[in-house]
Design a protein around this nucleic acid. Structure first.
Length: 862
RNA sequence: GCGAGAGUGGCGGAAUUGGCAGACGCGCAAGACUUAGGAUCUUGUACCGCAAGGUGUAGGGGUUCAAGUCCCCUCUCUCGCACCA
């Protein structure tokens, strides 16, 4: 008996099959229930699940199961983000087609997900690589195109030499490719973009809607990424050619302090100056050398704060439109072509970076903001003065407080016609072209006569041919596929070339959460009624690495689709939980370090339930979790301890049932289960016979149910919820040992109630174990369709509580007092305590502070 | 450099609103059962001290009857941004 264990190897697959057959996790729209959309970021089908996946999906599964039991209509779907490089690499290396490789990985991962007992509605699975999905990705592209939100332009773009494709800015991390870590270079190419900058302001503003639901960290990261900056644009004049060079500045109030100007080495004005013949050959050679040097450095090396400031005088001067003063024109490493206007005014007195540059190259420092004491002095200053002050040496603005000056100077420039107030963003448009074949082809053809033509919607999808030749050389295989390349122009019917770039896989994942609402629609991307019912996602869970990638793109998509009338929500994800990583020995699991833990082996050894329980118990969800082999052993032991607890209580449970009249619900016979109502009614009858131990167990159970419910509902404190469950289990063990079998009567309902509630609570964490034990109680229907246990406030309330007596804040005694005790009574009993009396003897009681139900602090002197 | 988060026993972590620091688990120790146990059950387990008692939440200071929690300074770690004009 003592060695009895939960036979997970037999029971887990059996329950999985039963759930599948009965379709208990399938979900439809239901106007009579509140809806709840629980979503995990869908995986790339790389082959096998890793522990990070298990953690992510276990968290969402617990949330989904809990909400389901709480009476919500829960949408909990899963799918695969299944376009992308690894499939193509497999094709190149192993000669297997990307589709075959992807499909077999999906099959394997789906099998694993099923083994873990996740409550997905598999009928709603989405697979981005399939025609029935990417047809709609292409359709969405056409909608964007029609709105002018998809456009093609030639620009310097990020190029990953290893992936042989361009990348969006968000996909370049520290100057390296987010996927393969190679150094990214800049290439000038004609590429397709989505105009995400058109939504920059709203994407920033609406972060406020997410204040409650999203972590500060992610909101801040998006805020920084969008990088809104208010200021002014002012055009300086290159007298020699008459060209205007606009600069962007956030400090127009310092414009009278300009002593030089710097442009990016690749700024077009540089070419113009060279072409104009204004400067001699030696200088041209020097400029060329400087440009070459900058080009050879990657972005990080060139623009890091650590890097020494480098610059070169171009030999020409510009004129400040405010005062007509001349300033030297330079190029320098620290000025970036793709931010602002690529040109910066140099105000060394009031900008630290300009100060350092001026010091190094011997430029004049001119003070135009003065502090109250008048101590800012160009001759003695050792760093830029960036504090507030009054404008000086600033013509008509002298005496103006500089913070007011910012707006006034900008307004003046606007009046005079050489500048304007403006806002600059760090955010760039989203480059979506990829020179890869395993993605959704961009539905565009090029006709010599008619130009760029969108593929008509009726001709979608533009299919990826299944006879592509993956060699790894010579660019995308689509380019070499004649059948794909050659198209007819939808406008004139003449011969045309097809666009051979595919879309960034982040386009696929920017709308998959909408497709889940209506996953099998062959006529439309989705039916608005379904999307309106299910959206927005109530709880989204995934890794922090998508803070400015997927999460920003999806927000953008939602806003565009809202403006086009396809969705009604402003934001796709009302609440976001970023789960921590799963570590081993303090560092990230990786094959190269050899510190991986395979979910497969863990499930095989301890079962899915133990695995899920450990991962939910070991750390709060947003924190990193260090995998511990001893820890999962502990979870495994608990699963069995729980199982034994219920099994050993079954005779008492059955005894209680035999004492109750057979109810309608129990007509199935003696194997029928006790309903909550029957237990509650029976306990009411048994009330006079209940011993203090009985009452204490009931109190403990009800109080703990309350606490756990709160942990799960309000704060995703799965770890403390599980510790509560363990405490319940410990209490039931202790109680059971005292329950004398000779003395059985309706009292055994106390135990019946306790185990029933405990099984219900463990259900979201250990779904197989719970259903197994639930059926042992006699229930025919799955526990996962049963409501979450409730608790009775009156039962949960303790009759007496232990209070602490403190003297000067130190604990000196403890007393058992009635729960409803008043502050005055507390004070009285505290001062009556022998221990307290002895300790305060001969001292003066200054103050007595009673805290109801908790403690009394006696402050004494002397 | 800027921004965010974190720092609590041997370890993972708990303390929800300023009110008993260390719940729960791991590990360890002892006992019971046992042919045996790495199974199971029970008990103990922050530190110092024989004890009474004292000390203790990165370090220092402060507010308060009372501080892991609030305020100020310092240190360390993690993450994000990083010459953004």
């Amino acid at each position: 008996m003592a060695e009895e264990r939960f036979d997970f190897r037999e029971a887990e697959p059996r329950w999985q099959q039963k759930w599948d057959q009965e379709g208990i996790y399938k979900v439809e729209r239901d106007p009579n229930k509140p809806k709840y959309y629980a979503l995990a970021m869908f995986p790339y089908p790389s082959g096998k699940l890793h522990m990070g996946h298990v953690r992510n999906y276990s968290i969402v599964d617990v949330i989904a199961r809990f909400r389901r039991m709480k009476g919500y209509n829960v949408l909990h779907p899963m799918g695969y983000d299944s376009f992308g490089m690894p499939a193509e690499n497999a094709a190149i290396q192993k000669g297997v087609s990307p589709a075959v490789w992807t499909k077999s990985n999906i099959a394997e991962m789906t099998e694993q997900l099923k083994q873990l007992g996740y409550s997905y509605d598999w009928d709603r699975a989405v697979y981005t690589y399939r025609e029935d999905y990417y047809k709609w990705t292409q359709w969405l592209f056409l909608q964007f195109y029609r709105q002018g939100l998809a456009y093609k332009k030639t620009a310097p773009v990020n190029w990953c030499p290893s992936c042989q494709t361009v990348l969006a800015n968000e996909q370049v991390v520290d100057g390296k490719c987010w996927r393969c870590d190679s150094d990214v270079t800049k290439n000038n190419l004609s590429q397709w973009f989505f105009k995400i900058t058109q939504y920059a302001d709203e994407l920033l503003e609406d972060l406020r809607l997410l204040e409650k639901g999203w972590p500060d960290r992610v909101r801040t990261m998006q805020e920084n990424w969008i990088g809104r900056s208010e200021g002014a644009k002012v055009a300086f004049t290159l007298e020699a050619t008459g060209d205007k060079i606009p600069v962007f500045t956030t400090r127009p109030d310092t414009i009278y302090g300009v002593t030089f100007m710097v442009v990016a080495p690749e700024h077009p004005i540089v070419e113009k100056i060279i072409e104009s013949g204004l400067i001699d050959g030696d200088r041209v050679t020097a400029i060329r050398a400087f440009q070459e040097k900058m080009k050879s450095l990657n972005e990080i090396a060139r623009t890091s704060t650590e890097a020494e400031k480098e610059g070169l005088y171009l030999g020409v001067d510009v004129t400040n439109p405010f005062n007509g003063e001349k300033a030297q024109l330079w190029i320098a490493n620290y000025v970036l072509m793709d931010y602002g206007t690529g040109a910066v005014m140099g105000v060394p007195a009031h900008d630290q970076r300009d100060f350092e540059f001026a010091k190094k190259f011997g430029m004049e420092i001119k003070v135009v903001i003065q502090d109250a004491a008048g101590t800012v002095d160009a001759a003695t200053m050792t760093e830029a003065y960036a504090e507030p002050g009054a404008m000086v040496n600033s013509g008509p603005f002298d005496g103006t407080p500089n913070l007011e000056g910012i707006a006034k100077v900008a307004a003046f420039a606007q009046e005079q016609g050489f500048g304007e107030k403006t806002i600059t963003y760090r955010l760039r448009d989203w480059l979506i072209s990829r020179q890869r074949a395993w993605g959704a082809p961009i539905p565009i053809v090029y006709c010599d006569k008619c130009g760029t033509q969108p593929v008509p919607e009726s001709e979608l999808p533009v299919r990826i041919p299944d006879d592509l030749n993956f060699t790894g050389e010579g660019g995308s295989p689509l380019r070499r596929h004649e059948g794909f390349m050659n198209a007819t122009c939808p406008s004139c019917g003449g011969p045309a070339r097809r666009e051979t770039d595919t879309m960034d896989t982040f386009v696929d994942s920017s709308w998959y959460y909408l497709r889940y609402a209506d996953a099998n629609n062959a006529e439309k991307a989705w039916n608005p009624e379904d999307v309106d019912y299910w959206m927005s996602v109530d709880q989204y869970v995934g890794g922090i690495e998508h803070a400015v990638l997927h999460l920003l793109y999806s927000r953008f998509f939602t806003k565009v689709l809202r403006d086009m009338g396809y969705v009604k929500v402003d934001e796709p994800f009302s609440a976001l939980l970023t789960q921590g990583m799963v570590l081993k020995d303090g560092s990230k699991m990786s094959k190269s370090k050899g510190n991986t833990v395979s979910p497969e082996e863990m499930i095989e050894k301890y079962g899915a339930d133990a695995c899920r329980l450990f991962i939910m118990f070991a750390a709060p969800p947003e924190r990193d979790l260090d995998w511990s082999d001893a820890g999962i052993e502990g979870a495994y032991r608990f699963v069995n301890r729980f199982y034994r607890m219920v099994m050993s209580a079954l005779p008492a449970y059955q005894h209680a049932r035999s004492l109750l009249p057979v109810h309608m619900g129990n007509l199935a016979g003696f194997m029928g289960a006790l309903t909550e109502q029957e237990i509650a009614d029976g306990l009411r009858k048994a009330e006079p016979n209940l011993t203090p131990e009985d009452k204490e167990l009931r109190r403990m159970i009800h109080a703990t149910v309350k606490r756990i419910t709160n942990d799960l509902h309000d704060r995703f404190a799965f770890n403390t919820a599980i510790s509560g469950l363990m405490e319940m289990t410990n209490a039931i063990y202790a109680y059971r040992d005292k329950l004398d079998a000779e003395d059985w009567n309706l009292r055994t309902l106390v135990l019946a109630e306790a185990i029933q509630k405990a099984i219900l609570i463990i259900a979201p964490f250990c779904p197989h174990l719970a259903d197994e034990l639930w059926s042992k109680l006699g229930y025919q229907e799955s526990i996962h369709l049963h409501p979450w246990p409730d608790f009775d406030e009156n039962v949960a309330r303790a009759e007496s509580v232990e209070i602490v007596l403190q003297i000067n804040g130190k604990v000196r005694d403890r007393l058992e007092v009635p729960a409803g005790i008043t502050a005055a009574e507390m004070e009285q009993v505290a001062l009556a305590s022998d221990k307290v009396k002895a300790l305060i003897d001969g001292k003066q009681v200054v103050k007595v502070i009673p805290v109801p139900g908790k403690l009394v602090n006696i402050v004494v002197k002397g």
